[in-house]
C-alpha cells in the first residue's frame, strides 16, 4: 500500500537502490556480534508490521524489477527452472499457496476467484489476468511452478520426501548464491549441501533434516542465511561465474561502500498439502555497505562478524579475497560500543 515499484536493474548499469524505508526493514541477519552455523529455525508466523515477515510472501518495492530480471535469466537459460515429472503436483500446491497468501495479504494488488476448479488470478502490478483450471497443466502458459514463480520474488525449490530424506526435485533458481539447480536437481539433502564446509561435521545438516522431515502442514518455519555480493547482481550463478567473478577484483576503499552488498536470504519452509512435498522459498534481499551503516548498530556488528568469521566460511561465501578491505572499511563505523541483542535496528 503506497509502495511504488522501483524502476531499476540488477545487471549492466546496476540502478538498483533501496529507499530509506527498505533499508529500515532490511532483514539484517546477525542477532549477535559473531556468526557460526546453527539450525536457526523459528515458526514462520506473521511478524512485526512493516517487516519482511509481516506476510507469508513479502512483496516489496523491488517486485517488478526482480520479475523482469527473472524473465531475462529464464530467456537466456531455461534450465534455471526445472521440475522432475513427479513434481507437477507439488508445483500446483505451491501455486495455490502463493495465490491464496498474496490475495489474502495484498488484496489491492492480487485477487483469486474460485468457482470449483475454475480459477481466475489477477496480478495488478504485472497486469496479468489469467483464468485456468486448477490441476489441469495445459490451462496455464507454463507449468504451475514456473507460472507462479515468474510472479513471485525469490528462488524456490520443491523437495520430495522419501527414503527418510528430502530430494530437491524441482525449482526456479535465478537469484542464487552460486549454486546450480541444473546440476543439483534430483539430489538428496546431504548431497546438495555437500559443498558447504564445516557444517556437516558439526551435525548441522543431520539436525536440520530431522527437523524438516517432521515439518507439519499449517506450521511453516523460517531461517536466515547470508552471503556477500559485489554489485547488486541477483543472478550470481555458477553458470555465469566467468562473467561476474572478475567484479570481485576491482573493489577499492572508495567504491566498496556502494558496490559491496550484504545479501540476506529469508528462507521459509512449508509442508505442501497434496504432494506432501516441502516448498522452500529463498527470498534474497540486497543492501549495500553504505545502506547497512546508516544503522549504527548494524555497522558495528557487521564489522565484527566479517572480521571474526571462520576463514573457511569466508571462502565458501566467496569474499575471502576482499575480507581485509571490508574490515578496513567497516572499522570506520565501529566505535567499539556494545550492541544490543537481536537484529532489529535501534534508533540512536
Amino acid at each position: 500500500m503506497g509502495i511504488e515499484f522501483n524502476k531499476e536493474t540488477f545487471r549492466d548499469d546496476y540502478t538498483f537502490k533501496n529507499s530509506p524505508a527498505a533499508v529500515r526493514r532490511f532483514p539484517f541477519p546477525f542477532p549477535e556480534d559473531d556468526y557460526m552455523y546453527s539450525v536457526n529455525m523459528e515458526p514462520h508466523v506473521p511478524g512485526r508490521k512493516g517487516s519482511v515477515f509481516e506476510h507469508t510472501f513479502d512483496v516489496d518495492e523491488h517486485y517488478l524489477a526482480e520479475m523482469r530480471d527473472r524473465e531475462l535469466v529464464l530467456k537466456s537459460d531455461p534450465l534455471r527452472c526445472q521440475s522432475l515429472p513427479h513434481m507437477t503436483l507439488a508445483g500446483w500446491d505451491l501455486l495455490e499457496l502463493i495465490m491464496e497468501s498474496k490475495a489474502r495479504d495484498y488484496p489491492h494488488w492480487f485477487e483469486l476467484h474460485k468457482s470449483g476448479d475454475r480459477w481466475t488470478w489477477i496480478n495488478r502490478p504485472m497486469e496479468i489476468e489469467q483464468s485456468f483450471t486448477f490441476l489441469k497443466d495445459d490451462t496455464l502458459p507454463y507449468g504451475p511452478l514456473e507460472y507462479i514463480t515468474r510472479q513471485t520474488q525469490g528462488d524456490f525449490t520443491l523437495q520430495d520426501q522419501r527414503d527418510n530424506t528430502l530430494y530437491i526435485d524441482a525449482g526456479t533458481v535465478t537469484t542464487q548464491a552460486d549454486w546450480s539447480l541444473d546440476f543439483d536437481v534430483g539430489m538428496a539433502f546431504h548431497e546438495w549441501h555437500a559443498p558447504v564446509p564445516l557444517a556437516h561435521n558439526m551435525g548441522v545438516f543431520d539436525r536440520a533434516l530431522k527437523f524438516l522431515l517432521k515439518l507439519q502442514l499449517g506450521s511453516p518455519v523460517r531461517r536466515f542465511n547470508w552471503t556477500m555480493t559485489v554489485d547488486p547482481l541477483l543472478d550470481t550463478s555458477p553458470e555465469n561465474y566467468p562473467k561476474w567473478g572478475p567484479s570481485k577484483t576491482t573493489l577499492t576503499m572508495d567504491t566498496i561502500g556502494k558496490r559491496q552488498h550484504l545479501r540476506v536470504e529469508l528462507q521459509t519452509l512449508h509442508r505442501l498439502p497434496r504432494s506432501n512435498a516441502i516448498a522452500f522459498p529463498i527470498r534474497a534481499y540486497l543492501a549495500s555497505f553504505d545502506d547497512i551503516v546508516t544503522m549504527p548498530k548494524w555497522g558495528r556488528r557487521l564489522h565484527r562478524v566479517v572480521r571474526d568469521v571462520h576463514p573457511d566460511l569466508a571462502t565458501y561465501k566467496g569474499f575471502i579475497r576482499n575480507r581485509d578491505l571490508m574490515v578496513q572499511w567497516l572499522s570506520q563505523y565501529d566505535d567499539g560500543k556494545p550492541t544490543s541483542p537481536g537484529w532489529w535496528p535501534e534508533p540512536e
Binding site: H86, M87, D160, Q161, R162, Q216, L217, S219, S275, N276
Partner: peptide, 12 residues
Amino acid sequence: GWPVNLFPSDLR
C-alpha cells in the same frame, strides 16, 4: 490434529 502423512504415494 492436522493431517500428517507417514504413508505417502511415491509419485515417481
